[in-house]
């Protein structure tokens, strides 16, 4: 079943067109990798799906369906709760580890202190961070290391109990060990969530994704099973890119 369906999606910043009639489906419980060189529209695609493009004063045409329902028919805060977004640089909000995780859930519903505690604990466990921060929940989140901060951001998104998790180059600033931890986390979570992973790192896409989409200058060039796309791509441009000839 398709979790997300994108039909003829175009996105414009003022005069610049960042996405050109993209159509693709995202299946439930898969990891879809989106690769492509700089300014190919990868981030714009993510920002279109959770309507974050609106704060950049951009506009879109086309259709995006979440569980066969147009995203514009879903209240925006519910949409963004159901589709989480992790940014390239981990941005922790000022305040403690606990407050960072609790921020999202508190926006969406009233919770008792005990419920909230439980939610925070579960989210941190799911984000593979609990063991490292269990005794410092009240410490300022900015004191965590870069890798921990990124897992905190993942846990913060998990705390909202989303359905889809979009990641925008989540490991670009991290060392290999932290990257491995995050990839392991994703593979564990795959059974409950759907992932869209934007990455500059083709090897990462090859390692963990089920299918891969290649974007170039705002167009969807190719979308196929990861193994197929990386071994025998249908398009020359894809071939050049994954072989590192440009980008």
């Amino acid at each position: 079943m398709n979790k997300l369906s994108i039909r003829e999606l175009s996105l414009y910043y003022e005069k610049h067109q960042a996405l050109k009639k993209i159509s693709l489906d995202v299946e439930s419980n898969e990891i879809l990798a989106v690769i492509g060189p700089a300014s190919s529209g990868k981030s714009s695609l993510l920002r279109a799906i959770n309507r974050l493009y609106e704060i950049d004063y951009a506009r879109i045409t086309g259709e995006i369906l979440l569980d066969d329902k147009n995203i514009f028919d879903i209240p925006i805060s519910e949409l963004r709760r159901r589709i989480g977004l992790i940014f390239a640089t981990p941005v922790v909000l000022p305040g403690s580890v606990y407050k960072n995780i609790a921020y999202g859930p508190k926006l969406h519903r009233r919770l008792k202190k005990s419920e909230l505690d439980e939610l925070v604990c579960d989210a941190l466990k799911a984000g593979n961070l609990w063991d490292e921060v269990a005794d410092r929940l009240d410490d300022s989140a900015s004191r965590l290391s870069g890798g921990q901060q990124q897992r905190l951001c993942i846990a913060r998104t998990l705390a909202m109990q989303p359905e889809v998790i979009m990641m925008d180059e989540p490991c670009s600033g991290l060392d290999p060990i932290s990257t491995a931890k995050i990839e392991a986390t994703m593979l564990e979570l795959k059974k409950d969530y759907t992932f869209i992973l934007v990455t500059n790192n083709t090897k990462q896409a090859a390692r963990i994704s089920d299918r891969t989409a290649f974007l170039y200058l705002g167009e969807l060039i190719e979308l196929d099973k990861t193994q197929k796309l990386f071994t025998s791509p249908a398009d020359m441009k894809t071939d050049d890119y994954i072989r590192g000839r440009f980008g």
């Binding site: 704060i55 925006i76 805060s77 989480g84 940014f87 941005v91 909000l93 000022p94 999202g104 951001c153």
Partner: peptide
């Protein structure tokens, strides 16, 4: 206040 703080809050569903 960094712009990213606002992005984070919006992306978590904040109005």
């Amino acid at each position: 206040v960094p712009y990213t703080y606002r992005e984070i809050s919006y992306s978590l569903g904040g109005g």
